[in-house]
């Protein structure tokens, strides 16, 4: 049984959140988002013309996400280029964001979202989704609302919010379970829910409730970041 978290946080406490928009000047919109030392940078290009033409959809725009870890973001150097893991995360990021982006306004076009993790300390996909939502808003893309994401973990028997790398690698007792989730910021609907590990249905419900509460705090930080800009 764990009584205390490695970094001394309360069980429902997230690491320090930092958010900022406008970090990539050449992009249509961009943002940086950090949970403690996990840092993601997202840049949005578009809506713009989509080539090759056979990918075009006359009913709506294509949302194309690209997620990757920078080779220096992890302790052991990551070989540059996409991996099986990064393809999967790109895809789930797309699915997490698609419900809020009003793609039907831009038929045949594409909106490109690039997410690079510059420092990885677990919960990178959550930081990536938060940064991407900010970058899309900053790019002036019409959206129904924002998306806020957070991970909930079960370390042995204890539910914790915003898992860090050390907790993720916990192996004693019941081991570590990692549940990244994303919520539509205002309506609270779930747009991402993944699970790596073991958890009972009752505990999963508790975990989602914890995540929802934490996502609200993430949303406050996102609003703050957007309202800071005057440009």
């Amino acid at each position: 049984m764990v009584y205390k978290r490695v970094d001394g946080r309360a069980f429902d406490e997230m690491r320090e959140i930092k958010a900022e928009v406008g970090v990539v000047p050449r992009a249509f919109g961009s943002a940086r988002f950090s949970f403690g030392s996990t840092t993601a940078i997202a840049a949005v290009y578009g809506p713009r013309q989509l080539h090759p033409q056979h990918l075009q959809d006359p009913q709506k725009a294509l949302l194309r996400c690209y997620y990757d870890l920078a080779s220096f973001s992890v302790a052991e150097r990551k070989k540059p280029g996409p991996t099986r893991r990064s393809y999967e995360i790109s895809k789930v990021t797309e699915w997490a964001l698609a419900p809020v982006v009003m793609l039907e306004n831009f038929p045949n076009a594409v909106i490109d979202v690039f997410i690079i993790i510059t420092q990885a300390d677990a919960s990178t996909r959550c930081a990536g989704i938060n940064a991407a939502a900010l970058a899309l808003a900053h790019a002036g893309v019409p959206m129904k609302e924002l998306v806020s994401s957070v991970s909930v973990g079960k370390i042995d028997k204890q539910l914790v919010v915003d898992v860090c790398k050390e907790e993720e690698s916990y192996e004693e007792g019941e081991g570590a379970t990692d549940i990244p989730m994303a919520f539509l910021s205002e309506s609270g609907k779930i747009s991402l829910l993944q699970l790596d590990g073991k958890i009972s249905p009752e505990e999963l419900k508790k975990a989602i409730a914890l995540g929802k509460k934490a996502a609200k705090k993430v949303y406050q930080e996102q609003i703050k970041a957007l309202k800071k800009v005057k440009e």
Binding site: V100, M143, E145, L184, Q222, I223, L226, K227
Partner: peptide, 8 residues
Amino acid sequence: RKIVVPGE
């Protein structure tokens, strides 16, 4: 004029 974010 107030700055608003999507969903506000």
